[in-house]
Design a protein around this nucleic acid. Structure first.
Lengths: 154, 154
DNA sequence: CAACTCCGGTTCGTCAAGTGAACTCAGCAT
DNA sequence: ATGCTGAGTTCACTTGACGAACCGGAGTTG
């Protein structure tokens, strides 16, 4: 019973999930990282209902994760495209984490279809848990969560 | 228009999200990482509706992310608790990624309530993008996604 | 023994969200 | 004028979340 039960109401995991945890949000961002910028492309690739896509793009813009940039192409009227902000770019580790887990556990061969490589040297890229002393941790079991100072027993 | 548009149907991000992307799933796992194991504790801490919690725990067990372990405590009848499997433990980076982003962008002071420290040395822990050649990447802009060999133009 | 409590659910009515198809509207092309 | 395209909006329908109530077995209390 007496597990580590401090107050969890301010936890950042929950907060982040309210921002990008709705259906399609993270898939929209995945496409954004692949370079997709226009409504029709998001819609065609994802297959999400237009209404949902309109809503998700709107909330992502409202959250400052995407921004609407007007532009016009050759002989077309002015449109706008959706581009990642820095706040959006910083969600990249989240997507990589999801991708790595899926590659390991959902793909038949244990590696997914998309490979990530370091643009500088071409070597494959992965997420690692590291500590400030320079150690790389093997997994969650080497991490100790430290509750906030005033930890009420819930 | 001619963005990088190969086929995305097998992407692991979507697959992982169908497994743990439903509402409450990742919060259940967060609690599991904090050591919570029993239905009533999940329910009390998360505040999720019981029916939803029953369903989420069931699917997580069905997916092999949690397992139901029977046990009995002092002078109590036999109950069962939910424990992380290795497959579940490997979702840790996903939660850390969500937490780090929330700490940076949602907390007032730019750092969240829970600190993660290396159990071995006590130093703070973070996620890093590294390549096999040993470089640490600053962000998504240094990563190039490589489509699968037979990349159809969608 | 009967009543009560706790844990781990299930059931139910309501309400919000997701879905797919159809419709809208502005501007360009013919 | 007519049609086309990108970016939505509207609508009817289905699915999912919510909260409160109910259930059933094991232990505990009287």
């Amino acid at each position: 019973m007496s597990e580590t039960l401090w107050d969890r109401s301010g936890c950042s995991v929950a907060g982040t999930l309210t921002v990008v945890g709705e259906k399609w949000s993270l898939l929209v961002l995945r496409e954004a990282f692949f370079g997709v910028r226009r409504f029709a492309d998001f819609q065609r690739i994802l297959g999400a209902p237009r209404a949902v896509l309109t809503d998700r793009l709107g909330t992502l813009v409202a959250e400052g994760i995407l921004r609407r940039v007007p532009y016009q192409a050759e002989g077309e009227r002015q449109r706008h495209e959706y581009r990642l902000t820095q706040k959006g770019v910083d969600l990249y580790p989240t997507l990589v984490a999801l991708m790595q887990w899926g590659d390991r556990y959902l793909a038949d061969d244990g590696s997914g279809p998309v490979r990530l490589e370091h643009a500088g040297c071409g070597a494959p890229v992965r997420l690692a848990l590291v500590c400030e002393s320079g150690h790389e941790l093997a997994g969650a079991r080497e991490v100790r969560p430290v509750p906030p100072a005033g930890s009420r027993p819930a």
